[in-house]
Amino acid sequence: MNMLNVSVSPHLRSETGTPSIMRDVAFALLPACIFGVYNNGWRAAVIIALCVLTAVLTEFLFEKLLRRPVTVTDWSAVVTGMILAVNLPASVPFWMPVMGAVFAILVVKQLFGGLGQNFMNPALAARCFLLISFTSEMTNFVYDGVAGATPLSALKAGESVDLVQMFLGTHGGCIGETSVLAILAGAGYLLVKKVISIRIPGLYILSTLLFAVVLNLVTGMGMPGWEYLLAQLMGGGLLIGAFFMATDYVTSPVTPMGQVVYALLLGFLTALFRVVGKSAEGVSYAIIISNIVVPLIERATVPAAFGLKRKGGAKA
């Protein structure tokens, strides 16, 4: 007879593991990536490959050097690499995705303790790092060989935009953010597989539009029209940010009420940056700033246990 295993109850475990969840996210990002390559050409494919390979290699080398268990098989570094790639313009020099992926994995993820310990979304932190350091390369969107404005910056300049083109994604922008269709295909997969719930992305998108209206009114720009709101919805990184980055488990709250607060904060900041700020886009900054306050939001939104009346949050 075998030696019997003895452990504390329960004696059942989930068949879903961290690797299968991460694999689902990577799979759900594929439509956006494939469309990015179609829309931007071979450079996009090289950038995606560089981001993923560098992210995985950085994690592998760091863990080898520190003699820690190697965790690259959990697919989380792959997801980080893909998210960074879809947030880069296809025209950036090739050293930039490498630098970004090293920053994401080494500085933001591993130096803070590895999987589950990072206080910001590593890929978005890396994107913001690149955006601040190399602003001109990061905001140079070449489409069909011509440098041009993204729909959101056109909108900000008061020009009109083609909504059908925005839905399909055949315009300039970051590799993975342009096609609403491709993003929704991936998001639908994650929702059906119950990897993410609609709570954060749904509220985030709705509140962005709501606050955009409010801020337009407050700043005296008047009531925006349907075209403006649809362009805000489909343009920039809102959809890919809402479904793939704001839902990042590690950097979003676990409490139900905390998720509501977090989504509203995201919506407010995104609208603020887009409407009042100088730049046309603000999803990345909105998400990493909200990431930082997640621990505070969680502490304040601990629910009252079953059979107890709620009296303030736990002052942990």
Partner: peptide, 8 residues
């Protein structure tokens, strides 16, 4: 393995 904070 490490907690990924998924909220399940």
């Amino acid at each position: 393995t490490p907690c990924i904070h998924c909220g399940r």
